[in-house]
């Protein structure tokens, strides 16, 4: 009953809207387009959605933990062997966990049409993309960093390497999110893009893997590893500046 009452009201209101708004003066009635505003808008939205869909945060994390636990079971529990391969295991598991979580970056937005609306917004695409990638990193990369020390204990990682592990993860996981975003953007329109995504993205992860594990190994020997960190930082800034544009171009192709 209430619905009916409103629909008559609706027609009345219509005449009112006709009077007070004129077409053409868009600049006046619309908000100023600021980069920061657009960035925060998308970031807030993605974080809200993630908080209401917590398994998206928890599942990749569980995957990370389980994969790491499989290695001692497959290789044997000797502390010496484990501590030798711990950096590699943690980093490979982190790569795979990131890969698994990448799908949610654009997939649901593509399926419900909000991706189209984002591409049609007057805001520059790279800002929106950057906000989405940052949100993705907060949701998936940050928890990995927080739980990594625990796994390092399980794998008897050398005590001197903990700082190196955390620093490499802190600098490296954003690179994984950024490069991964390019892969997802390219495959988001494809029905069975999941396996393809790993084929596209994993080769691009190799430099991060090499320098990160080497930094942790070097730290275990008590040697300075700032060189490796500097290279990972360079990879981070490089992908930070280039990836959003590649993602934007790829999304345009995928929604075509």
């Amino acid at each position: 009953m209430t619905l009916k009452a409103q629909s008559t009201q609706e027609t009345e209101n219509l005449t009112a809207t006709i009077d007070n708004s004129m077409i053409g003066d868009t600049a006046q009635s619309s908000q100023q387009l600021s980069y920061r505003h657009a960035f925060m808008l998308v970031l807030k939205r993605d974080l809200t959605i993630a908080m209401r869909h917590k398994d998206d945060i928890i599942n990749p994390l569980l995957f990370f933990v389980i994969v790491v636990t499989l290695f001692p079971l497959g290789i044997g529990p000797e502390a010496q062997t484990l501590s030798r391969i711990a950096p590699g295991i943690i980093w490979v598991a982190a790569l795979l966990a990131t890969l698994l979580s990448l799908d949610r970056l654009f997939k649901s937005d593509h399926l419900d049409g909000s991706l189209e609306q984002m591409l049609l917004s007057p805001h520059p695409i790279f800002i929106l993309v950057l906000a989405k990638i940052f949100a993705h990193w907060l949701i998936t990369g940050l928890p990995l960093i927080l739980i990594a020390p625990l796994l390092a204990v399980l794998l008897h990682l050398n005590e001197q390497s903990y700082t190196a592990l955390l620093l490499t993860l802190l600098l490296g996981t954003p690179v994984l999110s950024l490069l991964g975003a390019v892969g997802v953007a390219l495959t988001v329109g494809i029905k069975k893009g999941g396996v393809l995504l790993s084929l596209l993205v994993l080769p691009l992860y190799i430099p991060v893997l090499i320098f990160a594990t080497s930094a942790i190994d070097t730290a275990a020997l008590g040697l300075p590893y700032s060189g490796q960190l500097a290279i990972i930082a360079a990879l981070f800034f490089g992908s930070l500046t280039l990836a959003p544009f590649a993602v934007g171009a790829a999304l345009k192709v995928s929604t075509n």
């Binding site: 939205r45 209401r52 869909h53 649901s108 419900d112 049409g113 909000s114 189209e116 609306q117």
Partner: peptide, 8 residues
Amino acid sequence: LSGVKDEM
């Protein structure tokens, strides 16, 4: 596609 998020 309406572009409406289920979670919001």
